[in-house]
Amino acid sequence: MDRIPILKMGRFLLVTIQVDLYDRLATNLEADLVQAVSTTGARGVLIDISALTIVDSFMGRIIGNIGSMAKIMDAETVVVGIQPAVAITLIELGLELKGVHTALNVERGMQLLQEKIGPEDETTDDDSSTE
């Protein structure tokens, strides 16, 4: 299995990473996800990594890339479910996952995306950048 399934839920794309990422899988995910944002016109991407016990700088970079790429295609990315041990390790390593938002779990992540993107019918540009 060299691909991680991407689910579409309304205006959002949902990805649940269940296995430890090796390089090929991660690069495929990056490409597939950006492609999916383009074809579906999704406004938000939610990546659930609660099953990951390890995130090294390579995977961190892939996640960061996805966030930045989605951003310039006008979609927000939220990473949810980072394990405490993984969070501590990432900080020690020097990775802060800039460019993506984080939330505790899928539910909170969805809420956050709704807040960032605003109600569906409103298509006005809201440029209030959120850190």
Binding site: D23, T53, I54, V55, D56, S57, F58, Q83, P84, A85, V86, I88, T89, E92, L93
Partner: peptide
């Protein structure tokens, strides 16, 4: 690496740090 670390009962955070470091070096 995880197996070995679990065998000596290394704490979860230290285990994660070790495996992440190992992952960096092997890459």
């Amino acid at each position: 690496v995880k197996e070995s670390a679990t065998k000596i009962r290394m704490g979860l955070v230290n285990q994660t740090k070790l495996i992440t470091a190992a992952s960096e070096l092997v890459r």
